[in-house]
Amino acid sequence: MDHFARLGLPAALDLEPASLDRAYFALQRQWHPDRFVAKPAAERARASAEAAALNDAYRTLKDPLSRAVYLAELKGVEMPGDGKTIDDPELLMEAMEAREELHDAGSTQAVDALAAKVRADMKASLSGLGSLFLAGDKPAIRKALLRLRYLDKFAEEARARRMNLERSTA
C-alpha cells in the first residue's frame, strides 16, 4: 500500500496540510498501542506495524519536496538514491556557484538575502511541478526535483552559516 492510500488521501502533489493532519491523527488513534494491550500478540504486532507505517507515510507526505519526490517515484520517475551520483553540468554548476556565494557571504544580512532568494525559487519550482506531472514529462520532473533537492540543501546550509555568523559576532 502506498503512503497516500494508507492515509486515505488522493495521490496528489497538492495536499491540504490540515487534511493530512486529520487523516494521520485519526488513524494513529485507531492503531495506538494502548488500545491493543489486552489483545492477542498477533493483533498487537499488527497494530505496531500499522502505527510505524503511518508515521513513515506522514513524515514522507508532510514536506512538499519529499512528497513530490515520493509521488514522482510512484509514477515511475527514477530518482538517484543514496550513493548515486549525477553529472548534469548545468545543475551542478548552479549548485556549486550558489554554495560559493554562500561561503563568501560575510554577514547575516547577506546570508538572509541569499536564503530568501532560494526560498522564492523553491516555491516557484514546487508550484511549477504541477504542470510537469500533468504532462507526465518524466525527464523534466526528475530534473526539477534534483534541482529542488539542491535548493533545499542550500537552505539548510544557509541556516547553518547564519548560526555560525551569529555565534562569531555575539
Binding site: 538517484p80 550513493g83 551520483t85 553529472d87 545543475l91 534534483l146 539542491y150
Partner: peptide, 14 residues
C-alpha cells in the same frame, strides 16, 4: 574538469 553531485545528500564536487 569533472563536476559530480550526490543529490541524496546534496553534495557537489569539482
Amino acid at each position: 574538469t569533472g563536476l559530480v553531485g550526490a543529490p541524496a545528500c546534496g553534495d557537489v564536487m569539482k
